[in-house]
Write a protein that binds this DNA or RNA. Structure first.
Length: 191
DNA sequence: ACGATGATGAAC
DNA sequence: TTCATCATCGTA
């Protein structure tokens, strides 16, 4: 059974969403075909009290999207060259999002064909991920749904807790008392 | 270990 | 309007 994840799924605690996104599949449709992969690494950014969250600065032109409805896409540019992919969580008005850091099992189905061909794994980082999926700022503020060319599917696979590595988030040493929160989730290959 | 490269938010 | 900073990656 395959379910397209929508507002109902994303409109809950950001840490839970980050945890349960592991093992879900991200789909990206272009004129050439459909690219899909399993999400294997995520991070939660939750509320104005989270000093690592961009929204800790309050509502600004950039962070406004995090205050919007759950299931929307937040894209920003980092280090002048990499786009980061985030999904907005929590009810409208509460700023929060999940960063998608990594995927595995990339497959591609050409337009007009019916077979999925496996692709080599090169998506072990948030910047590479958006590059391989051709995701850029035009997705900012869009909703996750097939019509927009980007969506997430639950294939009914549940990853047990013992196969998930929980740790502090990457690259946020500046975040003082928030920097050690265990809000990063990663699929543990050996189990 | 470090530079590429530009948006962002805060200070002036 | 200027300035430091940055949820990264490839090269060394």
């Amino acid at each position: 059974m395959e379910i397209i994840l929508d507002k109902d799924f994303f409109e809950q605690n950001t840490v839970k969403v980050a945890r349960y996104l592991i093992g879900k599949y991200i789909y990206r449709k272009t004129e050439y075909g459909i690219l899909r992969a399993m999400i294997t690494e995520t991070e939660a950014y939750h509320g104005t009290d989270d000093l690592a969250c961009h929204c800790s600065k309050g509502k600004t032109p950039r962070t406004e999207i995090m205050f919007d409805e759950a299931g929307k896409i937040y894209i920003y540019l980092i280090y002048g060259m990499y786009y980061m992919l985030n999904f907005v969580t929590m009810p409208k008005g509460f700023p929060a999002a999940v960063l998608i850091r990594g995927v595995e099992n990339m497959e591609f189905k050409k337009t007009g064909k019916s077979v999925w061909e496996k692709l080599p794994n090169k998506t072990d980082g948030p910047g590479k991920l958006t590059r391989h999926f051709s995701i850029d700022k035009k997705f900012n503020h869009l909703q996750l749904k097939p019509k927009n060319g980007l969506w997430v599917i639950d294939k009914g696979i549940t990853i047990p807790d013992k196969n998930i590595l929980v740790s502090p988030r990457i690259g946020i040493d500046y975040a003082k008392e928030s920097k050690d929160l265990p809000w990063r989730f990663k699929l543990n290959k050996k189990s």
